[in-house]
């Protein structure tokens, strides 16, 4: 399904989500405030986006941006779902009730960024050891074991 058709379909079913829809780098993107993420994701799933392809986070300095890639096999379409959470209070509802595939990926984002997914059934570190301190993919992560690459290499 082409993006224009997708936008028309989305706007006809959910008029309140229509102004949040945009096209970024040729991909349909739905940018929502954090408190509307769960309901928007639920609407997307009910619209036919039955597959959560991946989810990740981006360190934007003051905020963390959360990026979800959801797909619809029926419509043969995919969109990005984006939201932002403040850095000092990184909490977001878990999407495990909607897509069980979110389970381990939310654990990974928690592991790397320290973003707390509220309502997650088993939120603990997945890649790093359980006693690890800090969140390595944050830009301000400091670890005395890291050796910085010198300029001449």
């Amino acid at each position: 399904m082409r993006i224009e058709e997708l936008r028309e379909h989305l706007c006809s079913v959910y008029p309140d989500l229509c102004p949040l829809f945009s096209v970024e780098f040729g991909d349909g993107t739905l940018t929502v405030p954090a408190d509307r993420l769960f309901s928007a994701a639920q609407d997307m799933r009910d619209l036919g986006f039955d597959l959560l392809g991946m989810l990740t986070a981006v360190d934007r300095g003051e905020t963390f941006e959360l990026v979800y890639r959801v797909r619809s096999r029926e419509m043969s379409a995919a969109i990005f779902l984006k939201t932002e959470v403040p850095r000092d209070e990184p909490r977001i509802p878990s999407l495990v009730p909607l897509w069980p595939a979110a389970d381990w990926q939310e654990r990974e984002v928690y592991d790397m960024f320290g973003i707390v997914f509220e309502g997650h059934p088993d939120l603990r570190r997945i890649l790093l050891p359980d006693d690890w301190e800090g969140y390595p993919l944050r830009k301000d992560y400091a670890d005395e074991r890291i050796i910085r690459r010198p300029d001449y290499i």
Binding site: L128, P136, Y141, D143, R145, I146, I147, R148, R149, I153
Partner: peptide
């Protein structure tokens, strides 16, 4: 992974 890595044993 010698440089700029937090998780690898050297």
């Amino acid at each position: 992974f010698y440089y700029d890595t937090y998780s690898v044993v050297r």
